[in-house]
Structure formats: structure tokens, C-alpha cells
Amino acid sequence: MNTRVSIVTGLALSLTLLSPAQAGWDDPLKQGEKILQQQTSSESSSTAVPEGVDTATLAKGLKEALRVGGERAIDRLAANGGFANHADVRIPMPGMLESVGGLMRNYGLGAQVDAFEASMNSAAEQAISEATPIFMDTLENMTLDDARRIYSGGDTAATDYFRDKTHDPLSAKLKPLIEQAMASTGVIQAYQLLVSQAEEQVPMLQGMSPNLGNHVTEAALDGLFLRLAQEEKKIRENPVARTTDLLKTVFGS
């Protein structure tokens, strides 16, 4: 039995073992978990503008920080295992299927779950480098007022700015690439068949299964902004991370 058929068969089998009650509350719980994961510390320190640094220099320094941080974040995620090997950004099975995955492992079908998850994470790793030009365009369009406000904001103020400005264009850019990567391995077809079988077995699941392309794309973007926030915080707090003269001028050496 090939991997594609094994994935479909194994997941369908587990869905027949999943009670409607179990499936029904899974999505709301996952949504709540996602919100909690995205939250940063409620106490974020602001950064005072250095004495003697004019607004233009401040803007250049901030753009440099975002360029460096963005490149580091994307490079980390685009590496082999950049998503798959790191629990904080690893893309899980969508919606109700994550609970089903646990059941599958109990019934000796862990290899099928691993293959399904690996394909999703690999697709995100292949596509994420395409975020770079969109990041660079956003930097070019940043105003001096934007720069001063971001610089004086909290530890992830720049990341929040980037999320607001780039989320939609990044989603539009990455989604077809992610779907193409998954389609080439048969994962999208397997998922669609799986969902159809699941809804036949448990009618109340109808409409609860997310679009797989949307799920992986949103999870990939969550991972990207998490990594960018980590890099931004390093530059703000750790002198070792300020690897250029301009960063040292603006953030201190």
C-alpha cells in the first residue's frame, strides 16, 4: 500500500473511532490555543530614542534591524526542518484531525500521521523564502513617523507592524506555492477524500474541516512572525545581535 492510500485509509479508520462529542469541541479549543500561543508577554518595555540620533538615522537603523531580523527569521524557517523540527512553529494536522492523529498513533498508524505532517511542514519550508521581497517592499514604504513609533514601542512593535502590513499579501503569495508543493505529493487529494469520508461517518463534522491550503499558510505565517519577533527582541536587548555599525548607533553597542 503506497503512502497516499495509507494516509487516507488510516485517517478514515480513526475518524470512525472518534465520537461526535470529541470532534465537536476540538476546533474551538484549537482556536483558543492558537490565540494563547500568539500572545506575547503583557509587559513589553519601550525603547527610548538615543540622544543625538535624528529621525532619519533612526529610520535607517530600524529598517536595518528589520532587514537583518527578517533575513534571519526566513533563513531559519526555510532550512530543512525549519518548521518540522521545532515545536514552537511545527504545523499540526488541521482542526479535528489533530485529535484523530493521537488516536491513529494508538492504533499503530503513527507513520501515516508523520508522513501527512511532514508534507505540510515541508511545503511551508519550500515556500517561505518568497516572503523576502514582500518584506523588503514594506521596508521601503515605511515612513519616518512609522519608524519613530515602532522604535519607541514594545519589544515586538516592528513585528506587529509587519504583520499588519504584510499578512494579506504574504498569504496571497505563499498559499498557491504551498498548495502546489502539497499537491505534488498527493496530500491535498488525500485530505479532500479524508474529509469527505469523515463527514459521511460523522455528519455533525460537516463544515468543520478547514481548507488545508489555508491551514498550512496561516500556520506558516504564524511561524514567520514568531521568528521575526524573536529576532527583533534579540536586536533590542542583546548587543551581540547588533551586527552592523548602524544597528550599534541606533540601538547601542
Rank of each mutant, 00 (worst) to 15 (best):
T3R: 14
R4Y: 00
V5R: 14
G10N: 05
L11I: 05
L15W: 08
L17Q: 15
G24W: 02
W25R: 15
K34Q: 15
Q39G: 15
S41I: 11
E43R: 15
P50Y: 04
T57E: 08
G61V: 02
E64T: 07
A65L: 01
R67F: 04
R67N: 08
R67P: 03
G70N: 01
R76N: 10
G81H: 03
A84C: 04
G95P: 10
L103W: 14
G108Q: 03
S122D: 03
A123N: 09
E125G: 11
A127I: 04
M136W: 00
T138F: 02
D146P: 13
R149H: 12
S152I: 00
S152F: 07
A158N: 01
T159V: 10
Y161G: 02
F162V: 04
F162E: 03
D164A: 13
L170S: 07
S171M: 07
S171T: 02
S184G: 06
A190C: 08
L193K: 09
A198P: 13
L205S: 11
N214P: 14
V216T: 09
E218T: 02
L221S: 06
L226N: 14
Q230I: 01
E232S: 12
K233T: 10
K233L: 02
R242G: 06
T244G: 09
D245K: 08
L246H: 04
K248A: 11
S253N: 14
S253Y: 05
